[in-house]
Design a protein around this nucleic acid. Structure first.
Length: 120
RNA sequence: CAAGUAAACCGGGUGGCCGCCCCGGACUCCGGGGAGGAAAGUCCGAGCUCCACCGGGCAGGGUGCUGGGUAACGCCCAGGAGGGGUGACUCUAUGGAAAGUGCCACAGAAACAUACCGCCCCGCGUCAGCGAGGUAAGGGUGAAAUGGUGGGGUAAGAGCCCACCAGCGACUGGGUGACCGGUCGGCUGGGUAAACCCCAUCCGGAGCAAGGCCAAAUAGAGGGACAUAAGGAUGCCCGGCCUGUCCCCGGGUUGGCCGCUUGACCCUGACGGAAACGUCAGGGCUAGAUAGAUGGCCAUCGUCCUUCCGGUGAUGGAAGGAUACAGAACUCGGCUUACAGGUUUACUUGGCCU
RNA sequence: CGGGGUGUGGCGCAGCCUGGUCAGCGCGCAUGGUUUGGGACCAUGAGGUCGGAGGUUCAAAUCCUCUCACCCCGA
């Protein structure tokens, strides 16, 4: 994976792990830290508890596809950590989980006018 | 037709839209390529790289019927022997127990050197029985008890003698060999080596985070071992050989490039071979990432299952569901394990028809 | 890539090296006793394919081979 939008180095991961704020739901844990750059970068952490190599690759591909279709607020380093319940989850469920975490952290830029915050 | 045995193979297709990695052209758009039969487990064997190098011995470990194949193997092919199956076929760490040591629980007299109940003879005694001896056929125990069955023989018995069978040895015929067959002989006392062991044979260590180059950064005037030495192939020893070296502590970096995919490679054909396999000729290039590419969403067609409808049946239609195991990380050769569903070939047994 | 360990009733463990007499211990569970009742205590009892498959042996939790799952190290 090339390009500026990915976190690639172990030191970068360790920095976000230690210093970042975290949000979580039943599928994912998200850690985010301000990086002072003009763009945001993200990375994934899918541990061995999630499953075998096929399952882990599947989760990472789904996450990459979801983040590719999502516009992020610039200036943040974000790590998504997959919990063991992500094994075998559908695309739509995982997308919902990612959007949930990003909107709670205020990092999501809504790209459609008709989507608005719910009011109760 | 049913049941089964063995072997080989496939393991989704097509088309859109949006993406990822590599290579080539071009200069931000084209063209080409992009997971597996197991890529898995890491159980063996090699290539490759470094440890400067060579030889010998001990220890340690692997393998273990025979012949062949192979770069090599604990793999493969063929054969022998012994089990299993009516059969096709299949399974086997399948050398040695007359080199030595150990172990064989419980039961039983006795598990390696023996005699409990018995049987027989002799002596003593009125009897009951007692004493000395012979015997291992019968009983009993056990997983296993000193070849088996039958006959002769005897006081009772015993390979004591005979026939057949099993085993052992010698001679001999066949086979490269494991072994197989024949003749003769004296008649012959367990098991365990996946217990130690003996014999034969093989094995140096580490691993692509090997190893090399470039860039960046830092602090070594630190401590120790050494000359009748120390160190060097990394369990120990010896002989040669090489060298001012080796160890500890402290400090810096955690970037990039090479290795990195042309190889005991793949396909086709011919020839040799019983086969594994080999030789030759022609053609082909078939992933190369590094937080780690090969994906996401659809449409449609396959295949299978269930339900419903029509039908004598072959089978047709509709709806729903399922579509496995699993993801390259230096590269090969094997082994093992996982796997929805399906295809083909050969053979065996049984039933029915002609 | 390399190395090591564990798996035995519901839970935690022993037994394995040296095969048999052996599947045992503690907690827990059930029943009964004791108590006005409960706890504690006492007695009795149930409960285990020894992770799985195959082999060696007369005999395997134990020996051997293959395999599954989990855990821990080192580079």
């Amino acid at each position: 994976m090339r390009g500026e939008q990915y976190l690639r180095k172990p030191v970068q991961y360790a920095f976000v792990y230690n210093k970042g704020n975290s949000w979580a739901n039943n599928l994912l844990v998200m850690k985010a830290l301000s990086n002072g750059l003009m763009s945001s970068r993200y990375g994934f952490s899918v541990g061995r508890r999630v499953g075998k190599a096929v399952v882990r690759n599947r989760v990472k591909r789904l996450l990459r596809e979801i983040l590719r279709a999502t516009t992020l607020r610039p200036g943040w380093d974000i790590i998504f950590i997959a919990r063991s319940s992500t094994a075998g989850v559908k695309y739509a469920e995982l997308e919902k989980a990612v959007k949930d975490l990003l909107s709670r952290a205020g990092l999501l830029v809504e790209s459609y006018e008709n989507v608005s915050l719910r009011s109760d």
